[in-house]
Amino acid sequence: MGLFSRNNKIERPKVILELRSPSCPITAIVEQDNRVAYFYLFGDNEDFGVKSCWIRNLIKAPDEIEVKLMEKGVPPMLTKEFCKFPEGQVAVNAKDLEIVWLEEGDGAALLENGQILCVIPSWGGDAGFLGYARDCIGQGNFAWELAEDNEMRKRVKNAVSFIKAWGEEENPFQSLQPKILNYYDEVFGESVKYYAIDNSEWPPKGLYVYEGEEKIVFATVAVALRPQPKIEMYFEDSSRINRIEIGIMLKTGLTNDEINNVASLISGITTIPWDYITFLGEGHTVEFQNIVSEKFKYAILTKKLKLLPPMNVPSFGDSQTNFLWIVPVSDREWRVIKESGSQVVLDKLTAIGEEIFNFEREEVV
């Protein structure tokens, strides 16, 4: 008899609902057979893999984990001790369901008639934790209880509000963009150039450019609309660093082609957190393959250099906005950062003063 024949009453799981993340290369799927329903996140890259969370049993819960079925790739039911409804529940129905992506784009919640059924946050799949489920009691093998005071309830509510806000007369970008531009104008001077750097994709974002007598300043606008993925797995309070804007200050005198090239590179850097499901922070390095200099093909992100002004960019949501300066570094400097940490190179860059803005400077290591 085949595993999925009618005689042993195990059907192949069917896809009930599917939705692509608006930010990250991840797809959320609800699957259900005649015994159990599951919520999955499928990542396009191997690092993310597949994350799963139990939703509900449709028949009486087993006393023990269905190890033999799991070995054959069959989704297991949650055991009786962790089930709020040990006798089983009715099957989920697509018309009652809604998938809500968390603001970071790397986690999602499944709602039934507006009520949260389960959530897979960014740390789902880590250290034995898979996700939270409304109909679970305690810490089960395939889901943990979604308590009334669970922080994820607020996070899902915020995500719903964020999505809804894009349909308002003044959407989040239209609200934040002028505040940031006015701030940059006050700090650096009124800009003469502004680039849209979103490639006509959601959410919109821009780049302010100011050309002064001595320096040219580039600074992003509204990248901070989305908190970065994965960051909360590494920091207990990520609210000071999860939303970013980035910029670079260079010696004036760049050609139009060079300005456009730098703008394009900055645009590319702003996509890294969501394209690769990661985050950018103090001391991180990125590629910076520019046409201005053969020597400086990397950059360090920092706000620790004294010559770079501390920024207090208008914030969005419950977080502060962390402004990181892009400082070009050479291959040798990049290798030292990788091997010994960023502080050694940052100290030496501080020592050379205004030369940090110059693509023709000498290497510091």
Rank of each mutant, 00 (worst) to 15 (best):
L305S: 05
R12Q: 15
N150P: 03
A147L: 14
L58W: 00
E333M: 12
V336I: 14
N8Q: 14
A165I: 06
W123E: 09
S239N: 11
L181T: 14
E236K: 13
E190M: 11
G131D: 07
K215E: 12
C136E: 02
S267G: 06
M233A: 02
E363P: 06
I300H: 07
F129D: 04
E339L: 13
V30I: 12
G138P: 00
C136I: 11
S5G: 07
K14W: 07
E294M: 09
I266N: 06
Y210H: 12
S161N: 14
E87W: 03
K9D: 13
G283E: 11
G167S: 08
A94W: 05
D257F: 01
D47K: 15
F296L: 12
F82N: 01
C53Y: 04
I99Q: 00
K297E: 10
L254T: 10
V156L: 09
F288Q: 06
E64A: 13
A299I: 13
F188A: 05
Y208W: 10
E355C: 01
S293P: 01
W274Q: 09
Y40N: 14
E112Y: 01
R20K: 11
Y38M: 08
E169G: 04
P76L: 07
I163H: 10
V286W: 11
L307S: 09
E245G: 13
E333L: 11
I180M: 07
P13H: 03
E104F: 00
I65W: 02
G73P: 00
Q177N: 08
R12K: 15
E169A: 13
T220G: 05
I259H: 07
L130P: 01
N312A: 09
I337D: 01
V217H: 08
A91R: 05
F357A: 05
Y40Q: 11
K304H: 03
D237Q: 06
A147P: 10
K51Y: 09
D126T: 15
N199T: 14
Y194M: 14
N171Y: 03
F129T: 06
V160E: 15
T278M: 14
S238F: 04
E362H: 08
S5W: 02
K9H: 15
P227D: 01
